[in-house]
Design a binder for these strands. Structure first.
Lengths: 215, 215
DNA sequence: CTCAGATTCTAAGGATCGTTAGAATAGCAT
DNA sequence: ATGCTATTCTAACGATCCTTAGAATCTGAG
């Protein structure tokens, strides 16, 4: 135990660092940042064991990064406020341009051609000819989506191709920045002769870039 | 070990969190962010054992938060680039407005009346009547300081009071945001009839607010 | 070439953290 | 009340991290 005089202060600061030091907690934060969820929904969406999800949520709550509200027998968690969301966005950007290993891991998982940034997409929304497709679940879509986007979950994509005009340029997105679903959708669309690209960062990237959540 | 499909990505992200999860490493970063230092200078300035300083520096380097250069038999470390400095500033601000315990720890250590923010000080520099006093070591002063500030280490303050015009409003600052030296200087100045306040965040806060480092 | 100083590498004990099983709590339905 | 569901608490094991002693490396000086 070394102890310089400012240690109590830095110990407090380190609480935030500690909260961000676990892959599981970072994952939970990203999933929660998309929308409020119950513990069970969260555990399933994040792919983390239920008991572990609950345990990690206690730590995130101790660091005041998430808050919960009780409704009946369920507990709903959400990211504490907008500042947490913004800070997480900054952490992602900071880590991304600092760690080549992170960029490699992302590239290996997504393996998709370059996507459109949130800013580029915002500029295009005012023009016709761009069709934005939300490939998440209808529940996710209902909780908020890019203005003008249509809901078209990946599972239904092949059956509903006739709803998509051939000449449109399609931008597909899913939830998190590392979600592979939109990349898969782009692949399928490409096979059927469409021009399609992903939205970098997904819906979360869109919101973290301060873009509006359309109703 | 839980493993959701995005785990390798979040594992990389967590490397940044882990680097920021230790009070000692956060302290080293703050001291290094003030200026480049050798391992020994850093260890002494931070109040951390030399062996431990070296060990923690290896971890900070692995996370690409610091870089080193060798000059003769000494190794100089510094914060990797401006983005690290900015991110640390954001982390401090984020933690500060989130953790009441952190605010309490700061208040307990500094116990000084409210200081001036970097932004306020910047606005005042153009007017006469404000005297900015740098109470750090001459070496720190030489490495960069608030434009127009005079160097007056705390140890010499009592002997050099006659250099300070009684009618000036004095702003004193030291290195880090949690350095108590400027608060002590303000106390001494107050005893001698001066109007004096501290600069919130010290020199580091000044730089992190994107203010110029005067020569 | 040898010596002294600065820093890092290696190794190891102790502390802390991550994970999960099992018990406990709280709310709703009957 | 009783049972059922959702969630948290308690306890415990293994994994990881923090810290520091001791050996090793590198540099400049004599």
């Amino acid at each position: 135990m070394s102890d310089f005089p400012e240690e109590p202060i830095y110990q407090q600061l380190a609480r935030i660092g500690k909260a961000l030091a676990s892959p599981v907690r970072l994952r939970l934060l990203d999933v929660l940042d998309q929308r409020e969820r119950t513990v069970e929904e969260l555990a399933q969406a994040a792919g983390v064991a239920l008991k572990n999800t609950s345990a990690q949520l206690q730590q995130l709550r101790a660091a005041h990064l998430v808050t919960s509200r009780k409704e009946g027998s369920r507990v709903y968690y959400r990211v504490a406020d907008d500042r947490v969301s913004r800070f997480l966005g900054e952490l992602h950007g900071f880590a991304h341009d600092r760690l080549a290993d992170l960029r490699d891991a992302v590239r290996e998982r997504l393996a998709s051609p370059e996507g459109v940034t949130a800013h580029e997409l915002a500029a295009r929304l005012s023009h016709a000819g761009t069709l934005v497709v939300d490939v998440r679940s209808p529940a996710d879509y209902a909780a908020g989506h890019v203005p003008g986007a249509i809901s078209l979950p990946l599972a239904e994509l092949r059956d509903r191709l006739d709803e998509l005009p051939k000449e449109a340029e399609i931008i597909a997105y899913c939830g998190g920045p590392y979600c592979a679903v939109s990349a898969e959708a782009v692949r399928v669309l490409g096979e059927h002769g469409y021009t399609a690209r992903t939205l970098d960062g997904g819906y979360l990237g869109w919101r973290r870039a301060d873009q509006p959540a359309g109703g």
